[in-house]
Every structure is written in structure tokens, then in C-alpha cells.
Design a protein around this nucleic acid. Structure first.
Lengths: 109, 109
DNA sequence: GCTTTATATTGCAATATTACGATTAATATT
DNA sequence: AATATTAATCGTAATATTGCAATATAAAGC
């Protein structure tokens, strides 16, 4: 079917999985790292740095934007992308809770 | 093409994206939460609790296992799955570094 | 050995993802 | 106005994912 059954899961589970999915690609991780590094980034800079075509990078940026992880404003001819602090904080909190809920005490298997 | 160009990214970027991808599904998050909660878990418990078919859950478990996030040992007729502490710690570290590298100081756009 | 129980595997259909060339739209520059 | 630059979108091909029914496997109990 290829269609995730979102209706049987909690809001939180769906939200977290959506955010994780948006980051679950090496190109998108690279893009985020690059944006964080320069604290302001233009799509054109990425083309050439990563070895991907312009259309592909634009698509990845769109996915990150759709997930709310980055935001972009038009800056003349080019577009300036940066991290959406709100979503980033949400991600840190949700993931922190999730990852932190496991305390590797008793090893069972 | 549908084929990620892993060769153009760093080892770390690929590793992190693989781990994130393995968790980027509400069913797999639910499974992990359930495993953490009971600290030892049998696949059969999940069938019926989540609203997914046995084959589907088995597949999700396999994916989590392939990524090294969980491990399973045969316990008589059933299989006991639990978190792989080593991978979990790795994930916490890698994600911590990645998420922490962004300090929402200067808002640019 | 046969049956039950628990999980894995196979095969399939529907849909999603990844990547790119070509094109388009919008602004800058000449 | 004509041209160049930048990024988005469209169309397409290749591959991956999701989910399930059906079947297979493996261990336990009879």
C-alpha cells in the first residue's frame, strides 16, 4: 500500500516521526549543518558544495521547509534559508524526552 | 532514480541519517516506546496493541534491528527484543552534537 | 510424530522518495 | 528592452517503503 496508517498513532508519535523523516537524509543533514555553520545560507552556495543538481537541492530545501525545520525569505534574486528556532526547540525537547526515557539499567537480552 | 548518493557525504552524515530513518515512522517510535516502557518486550504483545498486522510489525522490528537500534534473542517460542544500549548512546551523542550546534542567537530571516 | 504457538519470509499492490534535465518565473545587470 | 542569474517547478525514471495475506519456519507440548 505504501501509505502510513497515521490515524492509529498518537499526535506526538506522528509529529516526531515527521520531523525525523525530514532529517533522515544525508543531503538534508549536510544542508542543515551548512546553514547552522554560516547562520544564513543561500541555495546557490549549496549547489557545487554538495555534489547534487540544483533541482535536487531545491527539492530537499522544500522538504525541510515543509516540515518547518527551516524558513526562507526572498533576498533579491536569491533566497536566504535559516533554521526555524521554534521547530528546532520542539525537536530538541521531543527527542530529549524520547531518547532520555531509556535508562540502560537492566540488560535483558 | 530513487537511490541516495551516499558516496558524496561523510560517514557521519550517512550514519546519522540511517539511524534517523530507522526511527522515522510512527509505528517504529511506538514500538521503541513500548520496549522502553516494559524494558523487555515480545513481538506478540505489540500485535493487537498497535493496530497493525503481525507481518507488518515483524517487518518494522526487522528494520530497527538492521539499524542496530534494537536487539533480539530467542526466548523459547517467542523472541525478546530490547534496546541496543550502544547504538542508543551513539544516537544520543550524535544527535546531541548536531542539534546542539545550533544556538538560536542571531535571527537572520 | 502431530499440533499449537510465535515469529519470519515471500509476494504483491499502492504509494513515496531520490535524482535530474528541461523549463519557468522573478529579479538584476547591461 | 535584452540578457544573465537564481531558484522553483514539471516531468520522468529508478528505486524504496508501507502494509497485508499467505505461507514458511521453529520450538514446545501432547
Amino acid at each position: 500500500m505504501g501509505l502510513t496508517k497515521t490515524e492509529i498513532f498518537t499526535e506526538e508519535q506522528n509529529q516526531l516521526s515527521t520531523l525525523l523523516k525530514a532529517m533522515a537524509h544525508p543531503a538534508r543533514i549536510a544542508i542543515l549543518q551548512r546553514i547552522i555553520l554560516s547562520n544564513t545560507c543561500i541555495c546557490g552556495d549549496l549547489v557545487g558544495e554538495l555534489g547534487l543538481a540544483q533541482a535536487t537541492i531545491s527539492q530537499h530545501l522544500k522538504e525541510l521547509k515543509n516540515a518547518g525545520i527551516i524558513q526562507g525569505t526572498i533576498e533579491g534574486v536569491s533566497v536566504c534559508y535559516c533554521i526555524n528556532p521554534k521547530t528546532w526547540k520542539l525537536l530538541e525537547e521531543q527527542l530529549g524526552t524520547f531518547l532520555g526515557s531509556y535508562k540502560g539499567e537492566t540488560s535483558c537480552c
